[in-house]
Structures are given as C-alpha cells and as structure tokens.
C-alpha cells in the first residue's frame, strides 16, 4: 500500500487534489482512495487530505498516519505544519517552492536525512500555464517524476476528463512541465529548459 498526505491551504483545492490523485492512481492501474480531513471552511487555513493506492481493494478508513509521500502545496506551511510527521525513512516530501531541499529542511526545522526532499516551483509553473493558484496537477507531475505510482499520462487524462477544454489542457501542461522539472533536477540537467521542452513537445504532438 502507498499512502500520501497533501498539505495546502483552504482555497488551493487540497481536497480536490487528493481526489484527483486517487483518480490518477486508479487510472494508472491501482485501487485508490482519497480522504479529506474535515472542518469548518476558512480560506487560507491549513488543510490536509490523504490518498491511498494499493493493488487490492482498500478497506481501512483511518487517516493516513505514516505517509510514504507528502505533497506540500504551499511552502509557508513548512513553518506552521509538521509536514515530516509520520514519514518513515525512505519516504518523500515534495514541496512547492522556489528554494532547494536544504531550504525546506531549514524552514521546517527538520533534518531527517532518511527522507528525500524534492522541490518544484509548482506555483510558478501553475500560474504560467493555468493562471489560477491551484497547483495540484503540477504537484502530481512532480510526484510522477519520483515514483511509478502514477504516470504523467494518467494525470493528464484525469484532468482533461474532469476539466474539459482550456483548464484541462493547462493542467496537463503544468503537470508535464513539473514532471520534467523534477526529472531534470534529479538528472543534474537544466530544469527550466527541460520543463519548457516538455511543454513544447506536447504542443507539437497536439499540432
């Protein structure tokens, strides 16, 4: 079983992000489940949602206590939220930030060398392609760069189905760009160039 925790703020579509992630995992061939945490809505307040993938039907309804993957949609949450909590060694924390992994550890006040930290400028990529601050597709793209749980194709199909037309396409581009950005970082290549090339490749294939 793979367990994911999404951190974001009210208004950033955190609950939708977890639901879309579950759909993406399902499209990628897994059983999937998304669980929002619930409360009185306040725009801007910290929000958590969970997601699980497995290769057999998911039974448990408990919240995710030990996430293999943590998606942090807003870097300001590193200060107020304990995003590394419960993450086992070997887990991954993916943060939307312009900074690097050291910045993330410093801001979070956490060392945890056993946990990988991946950074991606998901909000910048999202604003460039979508124009609204809902970075869930870009965060999923970054996730797809470091794991086989989900694929870029599944992300794009899910967003195109849910938001037919411009919004779906913009999310598909943001996901591609974010995935390429992270992949390039890990390969020691130029992430900005890779992200741009990934989007260009999409446009060529669509032309």
């Amino acid at each position: 079983m793979r367990q994911v925790r999404v951190h974001g703020r009210g208004g950033q579509g955190v609950v939708t992000a977890a639901e879309m992630l579950a759909r993406t995992g399902f499209m990628a061939g897994h059983e999937a489940q998304a669980i929002p945490s619930f409360g009185s809505e306040r725009t801007g307040a910290p929000v958590i949602a969970y997601c699980r993938f497995d290769d057999r039907p998911l039974r448990t309804r408990e919240p995710v206590l030990h996430p293999d993957v943590v998606l942090v949609q807003d870097p300001t949450l590193l200060v107020s939220e304990r995003v590394f909590d419960g993450v086992p060694d070997g887990g991954v924390v993916i943060v939307n930030t312009e900074g690097d992994a050291d910045d993330v550890r410093t801001q979070a006040g956490v060392d945890r060398p056993g946990v990988d930290v991946i950074t991606v400028p998901a909000m910048r990529i999202t604003m460039e392609h979508l124009g609204t601050p809902r970075p869930s597709a870009a965060m999923s793209g970054a996730y797809a760069a470091v794991s086989d749980d989900i694929t870029l194709e599944a992300i794009q199909a899910v967003y195109r189905t849910r938001f037919p037309g411009r919004v779906g396409e913009a999310n598909a581009r943001a996901a591609a760009a974010a995935r390429a950005h992270v992949a390039a970082q890990l390969a020691g290549e130029d992430p900005e160039q890779a992200a741009a090339a990934a989007v260009d490749a999409m446009e060529v294939s669509h032309a």
Binding site: A22, E31, A32, Q33, A34, I35, L58, R61
Partner: peptide, 12 residues
Amino acid sequence: MDGFVLTHASDV
C-alpha cells in the same frame, strides 16, 4: 452512511 468518512471520501 458515515458522515465525512464516507460521504466526503473518494473510492473506487
């Protein structure tokens, strides 16, 4: 059906 636990959770 359990409120939130089921109503707001996404499943296959």
